[in-house]
Write a protein that binds this DNA or RNA. Structure first.
Lengths: 212, 212
DNA sequence: AGTCTATTCTTGTTGAACAATCCATGCTAG
DNA sequence: CTAGCATGGATTGTTCAACAAGAATAGACT
């Protein structure tokens, strides 16, 4: 088995699960021991995660879990608007990715009904990843996936990832329906408004939590 | 001095300068000796470059310079269209980034006059990076920069990076003028056509060179 | 020729070691 | 008492040597 790549996955899982909290310092010695790998191997994984934006690396000061501040959140939503809206606007009809979106919405509904908000958050990520897959661009999906993972850390930071997602289950549905039944550009417009509202919600949570 | 980060820069420079040709295998032992660093340090740099898409890493088979094939080129231009057009479309008037674009166009003209096509290529990259900076998004610039660097490798692969850029000096100028004097959306439309033509040129060169 | 196998080379990973830098502590001087 | 300064301890940066593991090559055999 290839240790290093699965180590990245392992770390990523813990990061987006919130086990390694935003801002937490990641000691090389401690983590190497915990995951039973050498420091060198761990450092290679750190470089990957650093390039993905999930951890922050300051020379001689070590690696810490990314802890997006207000301007990071704003930047992330800038990216989301540019990429998601552009992709949806130019999406062809009858793209297979739409099926994945539909499934995500479906799962989100049942998860919301069960009050499993953590799951709703995960499925929400899946929905928007599926949306970007309408572009048929692996590079766009990769970059977007990184940004979305970073946003997940922002949610974790203010610890309100649950009800923040609540109103957006329905709006995902609307965006999908508009794309399917009306037009891509109409859907893109709705998505733009969606993202604006979502951004405001997150920034509001930041303000309440007194985060910068 | 921080070896590792400057090592990444060093390698990046050699890659986009074409000293390390696309597809070339990068032996750990050889490169470690050449740059006078340890294998471990070099491997950390490799992980960063791999995440940026500049090198390809296959487990147990080592690292080689990325060698974009036809579908990679197509994917890269998909990303360019989505990002560049969206950014330009939504760009505010009087953004300071426009000044950088202007300077790039200027430099490109004089470099073209001096038949320094390699420099024209570099400046062309600067122009489009400046264009994306109109988004004020550091993440978008970072992702886009990676994709553009990868495209540079595509040019190097077919060894025609010189005159491929020739017709586009003038079109950069047009896009900039349209953005400044007319409207962002008119400029975005021109840019879209620009990118379509550019893509066709590159794919044509690939076909001529018999590359897949 | 084709395939199997043995050898060889490269990468994957480790542990230990030391240098370089940061950080916290306590001290000194003003 | 505070501002700086020295000191020591901890962490990261980097190297090296070694071995395990997988891949590539060459040769033997059918």
């Amino acid at each position: 088995m290839n240790h290093e790549s699965s180590l990245v996955n392992l770390l990523t899982d813990r990061l987006i699960a919130g086990e390694l909290r935003p801002g937490a310092r990641l000691s090389e010695a401690a983590l190497a021991k915990e995951f039973d790998v050498s420091r060198n191997t761990l450092r290679e994984a750190f470089r990957v995660l650093g390039e993905q934006g999930l951890v922050n690396h300051i020379p001689h000061r070590g690696v810490s879990v990314a802890s997006p501040n207000t301007s990071d959140v704003i930047d992330i939503y800038r990216v989301r608007r540019h990429i998601e809206c552009s992709v949806l606007e130019n999406a062809p009809k009858n793209h297979p990715g739409a099926e994945q979106m539909r499934r995500a919405v479906e799962t989100a509904h049942s998860a919301a009904a069960a009050d499993d908000w953590l799951r709703v958050g995960t499925v929400n990520m899946a929905f928007h990843n599926a949306l970007v897959s309408l572009s048929d661009s692996t590079r766009l999906m990769r970059s977007f996936g990184n940004v979305l993972a970073e946003l997940r850390l922002a949610f974790l930071k203010v610890e309100v990832l649950d009800f923040l997602h609540a109103p957006f289950v329905e709006r995902n549905q609307e965006v999908l329906d508009t794309y399917l039944d009306e037009s891509p550009s109409a859907a893109a417009a709705k998505l733009g408004a969606y993202l604006g509202d979502s951004e405001r919600q997150v920034l509001g949570a930041y303000a309440r939590a007194g985060q910068d």
